[in-house]
């Protein structure tokens, strides 16, 4: 078995490269060409005129704002098992459980708050949920409020969010 020696070309030792100035001119050529191109036609800049233009490339795997799903009969799917609150690394989910007396199930949340100021949008709550009751498929990427309380998503707000990728009701 003969040794294979690979010759690696070393750059940066020629006079031209050690002079450094030709490289500067080379770089200037690139930056100025970009500058002049964009200066002559500003709309050739690939960008989004947000907020007038909204992003169109949100995929079904995008983790947007949370929502609570419904059953086929329109009632809340969540059974207040606290799995999501346990899985949450940011501890931003606050659930108060109550008994459910309409015969559909045993338990439901009386209160289901997500503090979006603490939430890190990791999606662990969605993974932990055994009933497909919480999802992040709303496609909402910004939340606006004037005081801290505006950023706490209550149960009603979570239920009012719509999924934008089909599947409206819970699969479980």
């Amino acid at each position: 078995m003969s040794k294979k020696v690979k010759k690696v070309t070393r750059y940066g030792n020629s006079t031209k490269e050690r002079l450094y100035l030709p490289a500067i001119l080379e770089g200037l050529k690139i930056t100025t060409s970009h500058l002049l191109q964009n200066l002559s036609d500003i709309n050739s800049v690939e960008t989004l005129e947000y907020p007038e233009e909204q992003p169109t490339d949100i995929t079904s795997r995008y983790r947007g704002l949370h929502r609570l799903t419904h059953r086929a009969d329109g009632t809340i799917r969540c059974v207040a098992c606290f799995m999501c609150a346990t899985a949450c690394p940011a501890e931003c989910i606050d659930i108060v459980a109550t008994t459910r007396d309409d015969g559909v199930d045993d338990k439901m949340p009386l209160q289901f708050n997500i503090d979006t100021l603490e939430c890190i949008f990791c999606g662990y709550c969605v993974e932990a949920c055994p009933c497909d009751a919480i999802r992040m498929d709303t496609g909402i990427f910004s939340i606006i409020g004037k005081k801290r309380e505006d950023f706490i998503l209550t149960k009603d707000r979570l239920l009012s969010h719509k999924g934008v990728f089909g599947e409206e009701i819970s699969r479980a």
Partner: peptide, 10 residues
């Protein structure tokens, strides 16, 4: 502005 245009931003 010049920095933006060089980097293909606005």
């Amino acid at each position: 502005r010049v920095c933006g245009l060089i980097q293909d931003r606005l």
